[in-house]
């Protein structure tokens, strides 16, 4: 494992930032483009993961373990969020027979 990392020493931090920005943007595009509520949830997961990876990279950069502890907390939070969100989706499906989020547009008013 140690020798694996030694091969990695050369990647600039910039490239981690660009990569995570691209993944985050893909998540945003997914939220904007799709109407299936479950796929919107998956896009939110993608965004969370991009931020997690960036936090881990910065924690290595600053040699500070707090960043990785934060990633651990975000993962616990994501698990809770997915459980609640999917149960809300199940309830919406039970009431409307559809998971198209457009049927929820009355929430606007």
């Amino acid at each position: 494992m140690g020798s694996l990392f030694e091969n990695m020493q050369g990647v600039p931090l910039n490239h981690y930032i660009w990569f995570c920005a691209i993944i985050f943007t893909i998540g945003v595009i997914g939220v904007l483009v799709r109407r299936n509520a479950i796929i919107i949830f998956m896009s939110v997961e993608l965004m969370l993961n991009a931020v997690n990876l960036l936090l881990a990279a910065f924690s290595v950069h600053h040699n500070d373990p707090s960043g990785q502890v934060f990633v651990f907390f975000i993962m616990a939070l994501a698990a809770a969020e997915v459980a609640i969100g999917l149960s809300i989706i199940v309830m919406v499906y039970r009431n409307t027979q559809s998971i198209d989020i457009n049927v929820l547009n009355r929430l606007k008013w």
Partner: peptide, 28 residues
């Protein structure tokens, strides 16, 4: 429109982080 908006976000993020320029390689 959604894809264009996302592309704008990506360009903004990368462009603004370019000026930060933390280009030193990651060292453990």
């Amino acid at each position: 429109i959604g894809v264009i908006a996302g592309g704008c976000l990506a360009v903004t993020l990368i462009g603004s982080l370019k000026s930060v320029a933390i280009a030193d390689p990651l060292v453990l």
